[in-house]
Write a protein that binds this DNA or RNA. Sequence first.
DNA 1: CCAAATAATAGAACCTGTTACAACTTGGAG
DNA 2: CTCCAAGTTGTAACAGGTTCTATTATTTGG
Lengths: 192, 192
Amino acid sequence: MSTSPAQQQRRRRIIDAAVRLAADGGYDAVQMRDVADDAGVALGTLYRYFPSKVHLLVSALASQFEQAEAITERRAIVGDTAHERVMKILGGTTVSLQKQPQLTEAMVRAFMFADASVLGEIEEVGSRLTRMIARAIAGTPDHGEATEEEAAIIRVIADVWMSSLVSWANGRSGAAEVEKSIDVAVRLLLRD
Amino acid sequence: MSTSPAQQQRRRRIIDAAVRLAADGGYDAVQMRDVADDAGVALGTLYRYFPSKVHLLVSALASQFEQAEAITERRAIVGDTAHERVMKILGGTTVSLQKQPQLTEAMVRAFMFADASVLGEIEEVGSRLTRMIARAIAGTPDHGEATEEEAAIIRVIADVWMSSLVSWANGRSGAAEVEKSIDVAVRLLLRD
DNA sequence: CCAAATAATAGAACCTGTTACAACTTGGAG
DNA sequence: CTCCAAGTTGTAACAGGTTCTATTATTTGG
């Protein structure tokens, strides 16, 4: 049941189509029939690859994070304190997400709406995010095991970041407030 | 356009019906036709009161918070430190939410899924939550104005709590982890 | 008390996510 | 090369949220 190159391409075309539709129009504009058409694939095939719209959009988010992670992985993160480094990573990612508000809205809403059936995809997103934060805290490309307390702190930071994106996506708060929330959380959690 | 007693009763019947359906069956079991039937109201009327399923469920959440707030408002919150008091309030509310997992799942998912059109209801929930946390931090029934920093801290705590409930609701984490996340956040944010 | 105006009702209709299914391709195993 | 299992396609059907409409109460200002 390994995936052939043709299948990987299909999968990619589907995600790309979803991202394109989400990028202008947001969550509601990602309509499964349109995604299928855009990707040049039958509706049934789309559902074979992604069992629901939410699976699809969370996978798209995972794919975006994959890119973000790849970029930050290349070189060490500059900054004297853990606080600075984490802000650099999260702030940077936040800014780039905010450049495509509709896309972000679509992916974030899907992520938050996801139920237990999307566990796999959710955990992929979570683990990428966790890894990025952990790396920023450590400041080095290598990943020493985090203590339980550190893991809890990372989880809290991730939670705050995600929640902030939600309230930004639905217009409850602006970019400045997002920045502020994260800054407060990171500064107080990682006093250094 | 003020609401007559009959209308207030209708509104209440509708929310009660939604809560009843959500309590066993969760988000998916709250079907608008069923809510209308259960509340003894026509579908069109239901939509006149609540313009969407999400509005309805977020209003239900607001209504639950209203009760929670009323209860905690009666007497001062016991506990020597702000940390202890906040944990008492949030922990208590968490426990009571966890007693009705399906209901909580329904309301929390709606809250997180809500888009800009639900701003009013969302802000009602947010402000109740904020007020409860602020009161717990202060420890007294009266509400001195919070500083900007305090406000940011409260927002962070609220974010963490909500995110934790999300991951609890979709099975990503258990009650213990929810407790742990909140405890870490509160302890580090309010060192005392 | 009466006539607008406003609200509620029943029911059909519409939209989009999801499922079902029959026919058609394709990529390997033998 | 041939054949089979798995994958793909197109299309129809179903489900539940939402909208619309014609009709019937209910309120309310005069």
